[in-house]
Design a protein around this nucleic acid. Structure first.
Length: 591
DNA sequence: TGGCCTTTGAAGACG
DNA sequence: CGTCTTCAAAGGCCA
């Protein structure tokens, strides 16, 4: 078992640490149980959360949302509009989540707490509970390629056993490689942002990375075979997230649970059958095992089904360029062709090899279910906003994991489709965004805010008003290149590009910048924690006011680096830098 | 019914 | 080379 960075090593061992909070079920809550080193912080965090809740309950009036019943009795209020709920969720995240620690105390197992579902990957509930599962199961995840997913301890439902095994089995094998075997040398320049290079301290004892040949297991499962199969990482996440939430939030509605449980948010399978982005290709041994986890049974048929045990592509699957949408209708087992007309027609449509998912997309896939479960909100636009914020709140290690997965995705994708180009998909989507691009939207909001956008994000996150405070969001970091914060935050980072500026949160997108920011944020957190702690008598604005988007990002970062492995500059220096930052929200008095 | 919305990141297109 | 555009996922919303 790899050692976790500071103070996080044993986190996984304490079951109770998995359920530190119940107000949100935020994955970040699970960081509450970090080592003793952060005990005070956790305490503070709890008190702050409590404080904010109380305050919110009493501070009704100006804020319409304050009319909502206090969280405790009714953790899952029902809102007329998803946005209303989202607003509440966001606020709670901002409030209670401010001092929450990172979702995962240590890198290699960053996801473990989240995976701490008492349920086994196949959906069955593990008798031993989350930690039993985690501690005992993970080491066992390296299941022989031929083995089915079935866990002896988890009699999976028949309906599941038919679908999941092949895929999940594979998931058991692969997802761990990127998660466990992580090391800096794995981050070749260019792939995962260098700043995110785990830079794993040898002292942490984190195992070596997998052999380069071990490609990312992170591939969507074939809907064709499984109605709704969790994503490769989802093998843990989507299911666990619901399960975990269920345990964390006992009040979770049965409906929501079942909804989630049934994989609703995991993978939507195209009505016409699954079109796996990566049709099977000739592959080597290592690839074969990987492929089995990622590819539709149509393409990489499970041996059990006698399809293509060798993993060799189906004869009809010839061109890597051609998107494989092996629907029974279009591709008969014998390779019979349909009428020339229909074939041609299909070929025009089918050859659609989707882009490999980027880090954030992978993250979204993994976390969406959880957020949905937490919010009873399904509107992706809103969910994505939350996810986007959470993404920025992730520690660099956590993000690095996804960057690495994404890198492997691209790697595999390029291997599978050497001739594929993103350009191939241009125009595939029907009428892409009309005229305004995200960047333009931001700019517009900057100039004439909320005047043009049809659906300003404000509607989704009214509390946070991400678009309402572009100035502050940018001003804090991007617009102040000369500020010590910026300079120090990313000394080596190039000046923010236009697009970065256009994207309020993009500044943290830069690996170096993000890492540094997080770094400083860690120090800031320490100092600010004390400040906030001392001023609890007057509710911290952090807990009571909407947080500007970028500022929110920053605050989120503050919560995510308690055990940052990288060497901090001198605490004084870091503090000075952070204090120099226009974190108005921190110092702004509560209303 | 199909595009929009929303997010970040990668990559192609373009000047 | 820098900037802009498109697409990747997802599901409710809306015309």
């Amino acid at each position: 078992m790899p050692q976790l960075p500071p103070a996080g090593g044993d986190d996984l061992g304490a079951p109770d640490e998995l359920i530190p909070f119940q107000d949100e079920g935020d994955e970040q809550d699970k960081g509450a149980g970090r080592g003793s080193a952060h005990g005070d912080l956790d305490e503070l965090k709890s008190s702050l959360v409590h404080e904010s809740e109380n305050r919110r309950a009493s501070a009704s009036g100006s804020d319409s949302e304050a009319e909502r019943p206090p969280p405790p009795p009714q953790p899952r209020e029902s809102f007329q509009k998803p946005r209303d709920y989202l607003a509440e969720v966001v606020r709670r995240q901002q409030d209670g989540g401010f001092f929450k620690g990172p979702p995962y105390p240590g890198y290699p197992f960053l996801m473990i707490p989240e995976l701490g579902s008492p349920y086994l990957p196949n959906g069955a509930l593990s008798p031993g509970g989350a930690h039993t599962y985690l501690q005992m199961k993970w080491p066992l995840l390296d299941v022989p390629a031929g083995a089915t997913l079935k866990d002896s301890r988890s009699p999976s439902p028949a309906h599941l056993s038919n679908k999941v095994p092949v895929v999940q089995h594979a998931h058991h094998m692969h997802p761990l490689t990127p998660l466990i075997t992580y090391s800096s040398d794995h981050f070749s320049p260019g792939s995962p942002p260098s700043h995110l290079s785990p830079e794993i301290d040898p002292k942490t004892g984190i195992p070596r990375p997998p052999h380069p040949s071990e490609l990312s297991p992170y591939y969507p499962l074939s809907p064709g075979a499984v109605g709704q199969i969790p994503h490769a990482l989802g093998w843990l996440v989507p299911q666990y997230s619901c399960m975990a939430d269920r345990s964390v939030i006992p009040q979770i509605t049965r409906r929501t649970f079942l909804q989630c449980r049934q994989g609703q948010p995991v993978y939507s399978i195209p009505p016409g059958g699954f079109r796996h982005p990566y049709p099977a290709l000739a592959m080597n041994a290592s690839m074969s095992s990987l492929m089995s986890s990622r590819f539709s049974p149509h393409m990489v048929p499970p041996p059990a089904h006698g399809l293509h045990p060798s993993g060799i592509p189906h004869p009809t699957i010839v061109s890597p360029i051609v998107k494989q949408e092996p629907t029974q209708a279009s591709m008969s087992p014998g390779g019979n062709l349909k009428s020339p007309g229909s074939v041609k027609k299909e070929e025009e449509k089918k050859p659609h090899i989707k882009k490999p998912l980027n880090a954030f997309m992978l993250y979204m896939k993994e976390m969406r279910a959880k957020v949905v479960a937490e919010c009873t909100l399904k509107e992706s636009a809103a969910i994505n906003q939350i996810l986007g914020r959470r993404w920025h709140s992730l520690s660099r290690e956590e993000q690095a994991k996804y960057y690495e997965l994404a890198r492997k995705e691209r790697q595999l994708h390029s291997q599978l489709y050497p001739t594929w180009s993103a350009r191939d998909n241009y125009g595939k989507k029907k009428k892409r965004k009309r005229e305004k691009q995200p960047q333009q939207q931001i700019q517009d909001t900057e100039s004439s805010l909320a005047s043009k956008s049809k659906k300003p994000c404000v509607q989704y996150l009214p509390i946070e008003k991400p678009c309402d405070s572009p100035a502050s969001s940018h001003g804090s970091m991007l617009d102040s290149p000369a500020t010590p914060s910026t300079a120090l935050a990313s000394p080596a980072a190039p000046a923010a590009t236009h697009s970065e500026q256009a994207q309020p949160l993009s500044l943290t997108t830069k690996p170096e910048a993000r890492a540094q920011l997080s770094l400083h944020s860690a120090a800031f957190l320490s100092s600010k924690a004390a400040v906030s702690s001392s001023s609890l008598s007057s509710p911290s604005p952090l807990l009571s006011r909407p947080i500007p988007f970028a500022t929110m990002t920053h605050t989120a970062l503050l919560t995510s680096q308690p055990s940052f492995p990288a060497a901090l500059p001198s605490p004084q220096a870091a503090l000075a830098v952070l204090q120099a930052q226009p974190l108005s929200l921190v110092t702004k008095p509560a209303d």
